[in-house]
Nucleic acid binder design. Structure first.
Lengths: 195, 195, 195, 195
DNA sequence: TGTTAATCGAGACGGTACGTCGGGTCTTGCC
DNA sequence: GGCAAGACCCGACGTACCGTCTCGATTAACA
């Protein structure tokens, strides 16, 4: 699927939102068709029938663009609420791993980019904090249901859940069983069964 | 400190280990003096008085060389044995974070490189497995000391320990308190105090 | 004499002639200072404060660049007009041999390069045809002056003149006496003296 | 057609002629199959199941090897004797151009190599002188037959004949009609028809 | 209705690094 | 000593990708 031949034009002395959308669309397209290696700034610009200048007008560098792409692609960070924490985490792992199968390598790339780009690193930090924070309501519900051990530190648990997801992404094990992983990660945190 | 002027020569129709050593030496030297950005293939070859051809005879690409460099620099993966698992893990975290402060960005870079180089990815997988396996004896000792909960899965725990280390590296939090981290990570796995 | 520090920039979405000029200038400079061995693509780019990408944007390969350099350096292919064909040819030989003393090895190199690069070969063919054609007006003047035998084929003679020049270049006899050579080459073509 | 699997061995403390033969055979084979670009020292050595050391024991550099290869391939420099000079030259041109069609590009390469290798240049000079000298007997016979103009300088003519052959080789016109060329080259040298 | 100011497409450009290629030298171990 | 094998140094080549720059066309808001 190639981009349409009509080229967007200026809409006056202000940014055209269609332009940034078209750029992200093009990038997503490229990612799907060519993989990570195809995501060069030149290719994105060409695919989007945009100019590199425009690319850099919208994002300060390649990493920022990639992060924007990832955020948009990922959609809402909805957490499940099944009434069981293991189930909630497992489903989230399943969903996230599924998404990562496609464009999760994109996220790896962002992590990589963050290693030598402070701007990307900052954005990534913010992103991580949000993801960790997303878990707190879920964990609090589980606490109320008395699923967790009494001394469980919710923030630490939230980080652990995220850390394992990242670890599996970076070590290319997205095909792992999300239920097993969730069970393993959560197991020590759960309230011991009263006999 | 520049390299000595003596040049290694062929030692016949077989690889000369001195050559690869010299290359890694040169790379380590460069890393220390110029940082990550100085670790170009050209610079390494020049510094080692080697040819790039030779470099690529030993490692298929830059990432593989970097991994070799990291592995060698890291030295033995000795795990502590203090009689307390938390203490063991905390000390290892402390040691590893300390090492990473210096050349941990090297490791980040390798992880990054692995995302678009299958050879590096494979090497990294092997490396991760080794690191995880390194923990098993330590965990078994803790098990014998009855520090761990009865149903603790040692492999899962080992992975968790490593995962958190990587997570902190990649999210640039090497200044975190290793003892707090160790305590947090291990806490749910520990045997509940019998009152 | 190093190049000035001012760096040329883009002049919009079209090639900047100043750039190619600067590249050829730099190459000429290098040739004079370092000789043929100094004419590497890297050195030329560095000297011209250009990037290798730009170099290859202008010429498809090193040989093409060298040919452009040669053509420009040679200047106009002005042929003499002394009223005597032998004199004309001799003077041209003298001038060309003189030029070749300096950068004629450049021309040899181009001929060499043409042997395994079709692009250069084509350019060289075109160049040869031009040089041969350059002689025709001169020969026609000589014909009018009744210097040449009646049955002289001007095109063949033109080629012969050029062929001998190349032959002497390639066999490294640029120190030969151009007048003797011209006399020898032309002698059989000249009208026999009427007694 | 690949080389036999048996490898020649040393025949004691003296050069093994089979070795140099095998090397030239291999080079000829490569030239035919892969063209000029395939004639690298590595490839020749591999093809001949020889070592590069041996290559350089027999010839001081690549150019010398190529020249040896050319001389051997060309066979005797027999000149024709048909009773007509034009016919003699035309036939020789035909024969040489035919040979060059196959491996004449090799000769171009040697000329090229001579431009930056003095050893090859010397060998080439000697070779040229021989080729020019080869013509003298032929020309003397023609002189006796009164085919040539009285004032023809035989040495100059011989050089001219050779120069045109080289020129056509280097300008990639081996498909030219050798008879036309011979006629053109010789025409001004021939005795004018008495009417 | 012109003038201004900004967006935008296009693509040349500098810079930096990568991986590859080829020539020629060397050392070992076998004959 | 010749010879096969192949590691090694050196130097160069062509390619890739990033981020910057300059043009000229376009359009909306303002004069």
């Amino acid at each position: 699927m190639s981009r349409p031949a009509v080229s967007r034009r200026s809409i006056g002395a202000r940014p055209n939102p269609e332009t940034s959308d078209a750029i992200l669309d093009a990038a997503a397209d490229l990612l799907r068709r060519k993989g990570l290696r195809g995501l060069t700034t030149d290719a994105i610009a060409r695919e989007a029938r945009a100019s590199k200048t425009t690319l850099y007008r919208w994002w300060p560098n390649r990493g920022a663009l990639l992060l924007a792409l990832y955020v948009r692609a990922k959609g809402g960070s909805t957490r499940e609420d099944t009434g069981s924490l293991v189930e909630d985490v497992a489903r989230t792992y399943a969903r996230v791993f599924g998404a990562w199968q496609n464009e999760g390598r994109l996220f790896s790339l962002i992590i990589a980019e963050a290693q030598h780009d402070d701007g990307v690193a900052e954005a990534l930090t913010a992103f991580r904090k949000e993801r960790v924070a997303d878990w707190l309501p879920v964990l609090r519900r589980a606490e109320k249901r008395r699923e967790l051990a009494d001394d469980a530190d919710l923030e630490v648990l939230a980080e652990s859940i995220v850390a394992h997801a990242w670890f599996y992404l970076l070590t290319k094990r997205l095909d792992a069983d999300p239920f097993v992983l969730a069970a393993n990660v959560l197991h020590p945190w759960l309230r011991k069964q009263d006999s």
